[in-house]
Design a protein around this nucleic acid. Structure first.
Length: 580
RNA sequence: GCCCCCGUAGCUCAGUCUGGACAGAGCAUCGGACUUCUAUUCCGCUGGCCGCAGGUUCGAAUCCUGCCGGGGGUGCCA
């Protein structure tokens, strides 16, 4: 309703000024109505004006209401209640807004001033399985990328895979033990958990192996040719596997976006040099660290440092993240750095960002944000595990989603078969998993529940997808083309049509609100209210058996609704089938 | 110990940034609606000391303080 608010503000300003309301004292009071129902769309509480005006809020509201209602003729109906001035959009204002939306492929969503933004997300580890933990980062990050791109920004997807470090000594030696041929080419590693665990066990229990692993780390770090080649075998097998998962999930990540830890290894000494030059690096117990002071203390109450170089000369992830910041700011020219990483790493990012600011790696113009998210829990509130108590493999989870969706649709719509059924099952199953993740506040933990996410009722992907499919069905059954609705006069004769129109007209602000805060669930909430108001509309407002004017108006509303759902779900990385 | 986050209907969640009207959805329960563009859905009923206690304010789920309960972080893993 921000457009209505803007119109109200500009139209009533002269009148209020003549009534003695000083400029700057009342404008911010005008906002979206907080009361449910059809009482009003926009409201202005007058209570805070009471002392200065030396009148009761009720009197002020009544006076304003009667004085300004003429200024808003045809735009909003004005009334007052309980000291609030209430503005209710007129049918003609609403229908004009809907008509203006129709020809716009962006459905009214504007472009922002362009920024260059790096979004760091997914980040699985080479030679390790992808678990549910990676699901949230991948799904949330991908939605944020899509939303930011749609708003006109230049987005660099950054998949900061864990492809470097001491574990690779044992992993490479284990690879040699089982034979390179066993994992080469198409074969791949069938069980990454097992592969990693076997390497780990040998490292812990077999001194000879541990020694080989340690010397292999040295060779890797000195970039010995054969060792790098073996390392690459592991990297390739893993990234092929990641790509399979990404393709199943339907996310944007490709090999182009891979920018693993190894890519920054040559920059690490540079980080140390620059920190030394600035003079904030200190030696503590043999390690090079930065002390930030403030509230950062360890469990003994002593200053807690950012570890830059360990006592053994090795680097760890703070250094790598600082190198990343330098690279993204200086090479890619990023304005914003977003990190879609779990909440437990909050303190880490706060400290790294602080070091980067103090060291001049970022300046006031740069915005670094830890886009944090909570854990995935089961219905008992525990971290989600498989029946055997293992971490749930992401591929298994995705396969189960599709299987469950296919089961559900073959029950509900036996007409769908073959490839179409498979395809629809994929869209519904994957969409359900993504949507259930995206639809609640990412910063909180969320409860994973198959039955709820795959339900056709409630705030779920299938419910939104079904609304979309119903609309497609109207057009395909009637043989009327979607484009024929362009330029149609909109009539909003029933409460259901008006309610639907309001959700469509406020779609752009929902997208903006969601994108600005990097909170996909805000868009989900709005899409659900579109689908829900459409369902009510659909129940009451027949389309095809009406006379021409009503019919074409309603067809246009249907078309817009479908486009809003499809565009909105698209921004979340979710497909909508035309039949389901 | 210190720091951070969470606590809203039986369940899952919005709303907290930027204070406004009787705190909203969905699910579940219960009661209704299928010769239809539609039941893969819709309509209605029921359901709340917004963790507790103070404070600020004309007005607090929202801001401040202190508690209680749960979770996370707290130097050479990432």
């Amino acid at each position: 309703m921000r457009e209505l608010i803007n119109e109200i503000l500009s139209l009533v300003a002269p009148k209020l000024q003549s009534l003695g309301f000083e400029e700057g004292t009342w404008e911010r009071l005008v906002g979206p109505s907080t009361v449910s129902g059809s009482l009003s769309d926009v409201a202005m509480p007058c209570h805070s004006l009471s002392p200065a005006m030396r009148k009761s809020p009720l009197d002020i509201a009544t006076e304003i209401s009667s004085e300004i209602s003429d200024c808003l003729e045809g735009i909003a109906d004005v009334s007052s209640l309980n000291g609030f001035v209430n503005f209710s959009a007129t049918e003609s204002w609403l229908s004009t807004r809907v008509e203006n939306l129709a020809p716009d492929s962006r459905l009214g969503v504007s472009l922002d001033d362009q920024r260059v933004i790096a979004v760091d997300y997914s980040a699985p580890n080479v030679a390790k399985e992808m678990h549910v933990g990676h699901l949230r980062s991948t799904v949330i990050g991908d939605a944020i990328v899509r939303m930011l791109e749609f708003k006109g920004h230049i987005v660099h997807r950054e998949n900061h895979v864990g492809d470097w470090g001491t574990p690779f000594g044992m992993l490479i030696e284990h690879l040699l033990d089982i034979g390179e041929g066993e994992v080469a080419g198409e074969k791949g590693i069938s069980d990454f958990d097992l592969f990693y665990k076997q390497a780990r066990t040998k490292f812990d229990e077999n001194p000879e192996f541990a020694e080989r692993a340690r010397s292999r780390v040295v060779k890797l770090q000195s970039e010995e040719e054969e060792t790098l080649r073996l390392w690459n075998v592991l990297v390739n097998v893993s990234t092929n596997y990641f790509n399979e998962v990404y393709s199943m999930l339907g996310v944007l990540l490709t090999d182009e976006d891979l920018m693993g830890e190894s890519a920054y290894r040559h920059l690490l000494p540079n980080v140390v040099d620059r920190l030394t030059e600035i003079g904030i690096l200190e030696n503590s117990d043999g390690a090079d660290v930065v002390f930030l002071g403030g509230n950062w203390v360890n469990r003994d109450g002593e200053p807690f440092p950012v570890m830059i170089r360990k006592a053994d000369g090795g680097f760890n992830y703070s250094t790598s993240d600082l190198a990343c910041i330098i690279d993204r700011v200086e090479r890619l020219g990023c304005d914003d750095l977003l990190y879609v990483v779990g909440t437990p790493q909050k303190q880490h990012f706060e400290m790294v960002f602080e070091v980067a600011k103090r060291s001049g790696f970022m300046n006031q113009e740069h915005r670094a944000v830890h886009v944090n998210f909570g854990s995935v829990l089961d219905s008992d509130g525990q971290m989600l595990k498989s029946r055997k108590g293992q971490n749930v493999k992401l591929v298994d989870l995705l396969r189960e989603a599709v299987t469950r969706a296919e089961l559900s649709i073959s029950e509900k719509n036996p007409d769908l078969s073959g490839d179409e059924r498979k395809n629809v099952a994929r869209m519904i199953g994957i969409g359900a998993v993504k949507y259930s993740d995206l639809s609640s506040d990412r910063t909180k933990d969320y409860v994973f529940d198959w039955d709820r996410m795959l339900s056709f009722e409630g705030n779920t992907a299938p419910y939104l997808q079904y609304a979309h499919a119903r609309i497609c069905s109207i057009f395909s059954r009637s043989g009327i083309g979607r484009e024929s609705t362009l330029g149609t006069r909109i009539q909003l004769n029933t409460p259901e049509e008006r309610a639907l129109a309001k959700t469509l007209v406020t779609f752009p602000e929902a997208v903006d609100y969601s994108t600005a805060g990097l909170y996909p669930h805000r868009l989900c909430t709005h899409l659900h209210s579109i689908a829900s108001s459409f369902a009510s509309f659909y129940e009451v407002c027949h389309v095809l058996d009406e006379d021409d004017e009503v019919k074409s108006s309603r067809l246009a509303m249907c078309d817009l609704t479908a486009r809003a759902l499809s565009l909105g779900l698209g921004l979340l990385g979710i497909d909508c089938p035309e039949r389901m």
